[in-house]
Write a protein that binds this DNA or RNA. Structure first.
Lengths: 343, 343
DNA sequence: GTTGAGAATGTAAGCGGTTCCAATCTCTGG
DNA sequence: CCAGAGATTGGAACCGCTTACATTCTCAAC
């Protein structure tokens, strides 16, 4: 089924069919109806490849995510999709599994499809080639870390602030021995997050004892990391995890070892994925407004219907919000040791 | 950057560049090298649209899933992606949220991109139009229910068998009052699953007491459904859920009401998503080999490198496996009521 | 009935590849 | 040294659609 078939059936030229298809004004109502009927009867589907080749409006956006299995990324993806669909765009996704190499090749594949815009929702540091790409089409980077690329809009959550609130909260509860569980800490943005924990913890409680462990993302990674902490002999009263998924894994390990949460150890996550609420116990975490982020990304990529005079904003920082649930509490009442011996 | 730019730089014709790009034999090594260098220097990316328009090899597959937020579908998707990537194919996804209308439009969008094959991993009943599509390209349907469409290969898990094992197991433990929690039971395949539970339970324990509740997919849906069961006054000793995600939601509700699992109530899931293992308590469930399913789907869609004489098999049924964890146990020792009164 | 502006529709040139077929090379054997 | 088979490479048509430009209609005003 091609445009020509439709044109023949409707006894018009392909140009007219194209006009009808694209809602261009200047087609007589009767003609339009005839064309629409022909389209209907032949149930014709335009070839999107030919369309974008021919220079029609690009109607799709590219999205690259680090780990689609992590609900955090998935939620953002879904939010972008919802916004995009509303504007008549569809999405092309690629997943990198945190491998910088795959980031580059994914970007190429997507670019090969001539998308209208590109969203990089990744925790890897993006290659410099992105700056060149940004000259040709709108590019939005989520969580790109400090690297500020020319022409690339940066959206990020204030992780430092969120972590600040979490650590502050834990300290206020009385915790002094803490551990941090993360993954892929060699990757820029993720490393940064660990640093944030360290510096904030240090600032808040100079006498704090710390340990950080890294592993792979996911529940299994969190469980394993928690095991490492416990096996090391270090007995933190609180464990902060880089995300909720790992926190759930940590909870499991604690549960299996008969360590009560929050009785013996408090655990915190980050992101506030829906699972956080369904964990046992429900996780104290920092909410990252993924829905809003997805919307912002889409807004940035789709040329707004109004004037195009407005250039992209350089950076948008989204705030997080501390969500206190039941995985955190005051530490067990034994840290008096030092105090009592001094009296 | 177009083919022509590369051709000029390498001092050859576009035809030759194309041959190099597609690995067609019959290009002198020296020429090939020259072309490759030009490609490198210009860092040229072929326009996939133009390529598929021109009738080159189609290098992408379309996948439609019902609910990408459900890890079950996500896992299958990822498995397909892994297999596809290995063969040099990439994926175009669409999500229907269980809405039959969106199924139709998703299929159109994907077809608009001229994919090499189409996988429908959906719980909705597929529209008859699919049969027509199947005449043009390979189509695989997962979980398509009873509707056997001409030319469409059907892959499905033996849900009935899995449910059989679950119910059998629960009955063997001594359960007689059971509930079933599902979602979207008006959709064919999902309805079938509920029926399977009903008929099997009936067969196994004629005196069984049953209740079935339906809601939306997801943890929240499971929690709500569990609430409905309890509010109704019915006190089952075992609750079977249509999938793990809903089971986790059910667990949460039980936990909040102070009902012990498996002490007071046993709970089972289905699918064996990774979360099942991390739930509290870990879920007894039926493992559906998603990895294998994804591979089978990909194998069916990608024309095997060997002879093409082999036509698609009509149907493949994948077996499930009972995974016993800690969410199930014998019912509390009070169901003697009837027996004791008769003595 | 003409005329002419503006509306409606048709014509045809690409968009960036692939591939059939023809043209040109490269060699081997006579 | 030349013919001719086989290996390389170039030329150009075409894939399905959009769009600038040309052509044809329509109809009000003269």
């Amino acid at each position: 089924m091609t445009l020509e078939d439709v044109a023949n059936r409707a006894r018009v030229s392909t140009a007219t069919v194209s006009r009808v298809l694209n809602g261009v004004s200047g087609v007589r109502a009767a003609t339009r109806a005839r064309v629409l009927r022909a389209i209907e009867e032949l149930d014709y589907t335009p070839d999107l490849n030919a369309r974008s080749l021919a220079g029609g409006q690009l109607r799709s956006l590219g999205v690259v995510v680090s780990n689609i299995a992590n609900p955090f990324f998935l939620d953002i993806f879904r939010s972008i999709e919802a916004s995009a669909r509303q504007r008549g765009f569809d999405l092309i996704v690629a997943n990198t599994d945190y491998e910088p190499d795959r980031l580059a090749s994914s970007i190429n594949t997507i670019l090969g499809r001539r998308v209208a815009g590109l969203a990089l929702v990744v925790s890897e540091t993006v290659p410099p080639v992105v700056a060149r790409i940004a000259a040709e089409l709108p590019v939005v980077l989520y969580d790109g870390g400090a690297h500020r690329l020319k022409g690339v809009m940066n959206i990020r959550a204030n992780y430092r602030g969120g972590m600040h609130r979490i650590v502050e909260y834990l300290c206020a509860l009385g915790h002094r021995r803490m551990a941090f569980i993360g993954h892929h800490t060699r990757l820029g943005p993720l490393h940064e997050r660990r640093q944030a924990f360290l510096s904030i913890a240090e600032e808040y409680a100079p006498q704090v004892k710390l340990m950080t462990v890294a592993n792979v993302d996911g529940m299994a990674g969190g469980q394993q990391a928690m095991g490492q902490v416990l096996d090391s002999g270090f007995r933190p009263t609180a464990v902060a995890c880089v995300n909720d998924l790992m926190a759930v894994g940590a909870l499991r390990e604690l549960h299996m070892r008969g360590i009560a949460v929050p009785g013996d150890v408090s655990v915190t996550g980050f992101d506030n994925i829906s699972l956080a609420e369904f964990a046992t116990p429900p996780l104290t975490t920092a909410d990252v407004p993924r829905e809003m982020i997805g919307r912002l990304i889409c807004d940035a990529l789709v040329p707004p219907v109004g004037g195009d005079g407005t250039r992209l904003r350089k950076e948008i920082v989204v705030e997080t919000q501390l969500i206190v649930r039941e995985s955190t509490a005051r530490p067990a009442a034994r840290p008096r040791r030092r105090t009592s011996s001094s009296r």
